[in-house]
Simulated scan of single mutants.
Amino acid sequence: MARLAVEIANGDEPGEERGEMLRQHGVAEPDAGALAVLVPALRAAVEAAVQGGPLEPVNVLLERYPPVIRVDGHDGPGTAHLHFAPNGEDPVTWLGRNCAAALAHVVCGDPAVTLGRCHAAGCGRFYVDDSRNRTRRFCSNACASRTTVAAYRARRKAAG
C-alpha cells in the first residue's frame, strides 16, 4: 500500500500492480477529477513519512479517510491478512483509507517499509526503498545516472 501511496503522490499513471489490486478488491479505477481531491493530503502525508515527521499530515489523512480494519482471507485458506477498507468501496475512499493506514505504519517505524525522496537535482519524486540495506537515494536508474554523469563532468571541468 505504501507503494500505491507513492505512485499516487507522484502523479504517476495507474500501473499494472495498482490495477490488479483494485480488481482483486472490487474497486474501480477512480477518474482523475475524483482522485484530485485525495492527492494534496496524500502528498503531504508521504512527505511527512519520508522525513519521519511531522505527524499531522498523516493524522489529517487518517481523519479524512479513517481505516475500517478487518481480517480477510480472500486469497484462500491460510492467507488471512488485514484490510483497511471494505471491498467494493468508492475508489477514492478505498485508496484514502488504505494509503492512510500504510503511511501511519511507516511513520510509526514499520521496518519493512522505507520511503525516500529522490536526491537528483530537479526531481523530487518519492520512492519505496526496497534495497537490501535501505540506502537508495534515487527514484530511478535514470536519475542516478544523470547525477553520476553531472558529478563526473563537474570534476573534469574543475581539474582543468
Rank of each mutant, 00 (worst) to 15 (best):
A49R: 03
A49D: 02
V50D: 04
Q51T: 00
Q51I: 00
Q51R: 15
Q51L: 15
Q51C: 08
G52C: 09
G52M: 05
G52S: 09
G52D: 09
G52Q: 06
G52Y: 05
G52F: 05
G53V: 04
P54M: 08
E56V: 08
E56K: 05
E56S: 11
P57C: 08
P57V: 03
P57F: 06
N59S: 09
N59F: 08
V60L: 13
V60G: 05
V60F: 09
L61I: 04
L62N: 05
R64Q: 14
Y65S: 03
Y65K: 00
Y65G: 01
P66R: 09
P67R: 04
P67S: 10
P67A: 08
P67I: 04
V68M: 12
V68K: 07
V68F: 15
I69T: 14
R70W: 07
D72Q: 08
G73I: 01
G73W: 01
H74C: 12
H74T: 00
H74V: 05
D75Y: 14
P77G: 04
P77S: 12
P77N: 00
G78I: 02
T79E: 13
T79N: 14
T79H: 14
T79A: 13
L82G: 00
L82E: 11
H83M: 15
H83G: 07
H83I: 04
H83E: 15
H83R: 13
F84E: 03
F84T: 07
F84I: 04
P86M: 11
N87H: 14
N87G: 12
N87Y: 12
N87W: 09
G88V: 06
G88K: 07
E89V: 01
E89Q: 13
D90W: 06
P91N: 10
W94E: 02
L95S: 02
G96I: 05
G96S: 10
G96T: 03
R97N: 06
C99G: 02
C99I: 03
C99R: 02
A101E: 03
A101D: 03
A102I: 00
A102S: 13
L103F: 10
L103R: 02
A104I: 02
H105T: 00
V106N: 01
V107L: 09
V107Y: 04
C108Y: 06
C108V: 01
G109S: 10
G109L: 08
G109H: 06
D110V: 01
P111D: 12
A112T: 09
A112L: 12
A112Y: 07
A112N: 10
V113K: 04
L115R: 01
L115F: 08
G116Y: 03
G116M: 09
R117T: 10
R117A: 14
C118G: 05
H119L: 13
A121H: 11
A121Y: 07
G122P: 08
C123T: 07
C123V: 09
C123A: 10
G124P: 01
R125G: 06
R125T: 06
F126Q: 01
F126H: 05
V128L: 15
D129A: 07
D130N: 12
D130M: 12
S131T: 11
R132Q: 14
R132W: 06
R132S: 11
R134E: 11
R134Q: 12
T135S: 15
T135A: 15
T135L: 15
R136H: 06
R136F: 08
R137C: 11
R137M: 13
C139Y: 02
C139T: 03
C139P: 04
C139Q: 04
S140V: 07
N141G: 15
N141P: 07
N141S: 12
A142N: 08
